[in-house]
Design a protein around this nucleic acid. Structure first.
Lengths: 338, 338
DNA sequence: GTAGGGGAAGAGCGGTGGCTCTCCCCCAGG
DNA sequence: CCTGGGGGAGAGCCACCGCTCTTCCCCTAC
């Protein structure tokens, strides 16, 4: 019933097996007559080349491994969708692996990935041990980090410009006249968290201001709620807060409005980061820094393909500009443009 | 630098290549001494078996193809995450394909999937042409539909019990005393849409009521908004509406509250379907029918594995009970329990 | 006659698995 | 006690999975 091989097609078409192979290999030459005969026989038998067998000999699996940690932040599914589409259009396919965020499981997951002879690995919001990096390097498998960077290691990475993104939020708050400014971050292990905070603090410092309150929400809804309750529980609470991801910002807004009876933006301005779809929904209408997933994905794939074609190419860290999207969750400075 | 083969390991360990193979094959026998020598040599060389080569001869790729259409409904990323995790724990890996919702591209996508010698195909919210079904059948690749069913074809499928889910929403509305009841659906091609509506209508009919308003939102935010504006633009608008997915329900709520100044649930009761995370966020607090993704995934994988082990096993359609989750977006009937 | 296009043949790619062969252990018989 | 034969575990050999690619050869066209 199953498994039609090129040999059977060859027999039926009355040619050699290698002729069949040539017909199905893009760069190869065959006479029109042979092509016709072979295609017809293949059609009749329902033959399609076995990609696995092909990749065994060519050494190219056309598979890209993708390692993802959280899918609960809406940004990642969206990125995944675009990534998969884009790679598909380039003739690659995506083998997906979920990783919890401890290094142990990540390492194991990447080992399994390597077993599948993937041509490259893209990790989304996942850190890599240097040991692992070495193994990928040794196996000649390029790695590109998506939305995460690592200083020490020589990986390629694509992120939004988190530092300048954080900075622009601070400038926005300052221009609106806010004085008590808070920050609710994610998790110290994440480069995105660190850089957003650093950019935010740096712009405050330039203006001679300092952070009035600081907390970490671990990128979770519960963590963010807890941070918000603590930061806004007292009467001298901040009048503006930058939350490191939209996902957490929604939770913060829910606490401010639903539990603490604070009005947004009159009592508190809230700004997030990511610009996931719910940020534009009327119930939140969240001002936020937009991570342009499409651009990030495009750069990631480009970088990946470049490294596959030329393994010696130097690792690069690409930072995508991330514009501030102004909506109604934060006080808008007089005469604010752009 | 790369590509350590079993032969090299064999040389270093001073054994035959097949001995190396045996050490890395679960069921095979080898002496402790050999195992030790081989493991050591493999360690030193960084050897891992080539899964592709293995699957070429065993005929088992341990790859499951996953076809997904929309990742913009939050339900799917969540399901995908669980699915991938669960399959991983069973020793399978997921090759992911995005499909737009026309049959043409789906067919092409599945062809490519078949090229990778996948052992099974799971489609999430995607319909299959019968021609395609036949080809999968012919190739001996089982197909399981996730969150979609197809009457005619003999596929296995796992869905929530959409009919009874829709029914329970109608009963809930009726118990609360609603008289003008509307429905905003998805897209007629989707079995989920049809069954939810059928269940909803059937419970109304049993009570001697009929649908006061009906519209389709195509499962998109824009479509749902348009439907809502149209349905609630006049003064004799419905006082309760069932929206076929949470995703659309949020958009409907935004329009009702933000554009039409209607109060929820005083002026209009809204109930959704899915129970995605934002449904429990305070800004929406949406009453909805819960699709238990974890149970659905578990059943899907179980079914898949059963069909892989025993290709002759009869196709089954498993329906998962879906409870109504009562929150504040709809009037709660007096003395309502469960 | 020579050049060149295109088909056939065969050697792998990195493994697996059946078959054979060896070696060792154990037991029975002299 | 020593020796020989039977049996089983474990290692080696080799064919093969389905395809690509190089080499070689043939046939055609100029």
């Amino acid at each position: 019933m199953d498994k039609v091989t090129s040999l059977e097609v060859a027999k039926r078409a009355g040619v050699s097996q290698s002729a069949v192979s040539r017909v199905f290999t893009p760069g190869a030459s065959a006479s029109n007559k042979t092509i016709l005969k072979v295609r017809e026989a293949a059609q009749e038998l329902g033959y399609r080349p076995n990609v696995l067998a092909r990749s065994l000999i060519t050494g190219k699996s056309r598979i890209i491994g993708l390692v993802v940690a959280y899918l609960d932040n809406y940004f990642y599914p969206l990125a995944l969708e675009k990534l998969s589409n884009y790679l598909q259009s380039e003739g690659y396919h995506v083998l997906i692996f979920m990783a919890t965020n401890d290094t142990l499981s990540t390492d194991q997951v990447i080992d399994e990935l390597l077993d599948y002879q993937v041509e490259g690995i893209i990790t989304a919001s996942v850190g890599l041990s240097s040991d692992l990096t070495a193994r990928c390097e040794a196996a000649g498998v390029p790695v590109v980090l998506f939305n995460r960077s690592q200083d020490a290691a020589n990986h390629s990475a694509v992120t939004s410009n988190n530092f300048s993104g954080g900075k622009s939020v601070a400038e926005f708050f300052l221009a609106a006249g806010h004085k008590r400014i808070g920050y609710i971050g994610g998790w110290e292990g994440a480069s995105t968290q660190r850089e957003r905070e650093a950019g935010f603090r740096s712009a405050l410092a330039e203006a001679g201001e300092a952070l009035a309150a600081h907390a970490l929400g671990q990128f979770t809804v519960e963590g963010a709620k807890k941070a918000a309750r603590q930061m806004f529980g007292e009467s001298d609470h901040p009048d503006a807060v930058f939350v490191a991801t939209d996902h957490m910002a929604f939770a913060v807004m829910d606490v401010l409005r639903g539990e603490l009876n604070l009005h947004i933006p009159n009592d508190v301005s809230v700004v997030g980061y990511d610009d996931v779809p719910p940020a534009s929904w009327a119930a939140y209408d969240l001002s936020t820094v937009r991570q342009r997933a499409d651009v990030m994905v495009k750069e990631t794939v480009t970088l990946m393909i470049e490294k596959i074609r030329n393994p010696a190419s130097a690792p690069r860290h690409i930072k995508i500009d991330s514009p501030l999207i102004v909506r109604s969750s934060a006080k808008i400075p007089e005469g604010w443009t752009s």
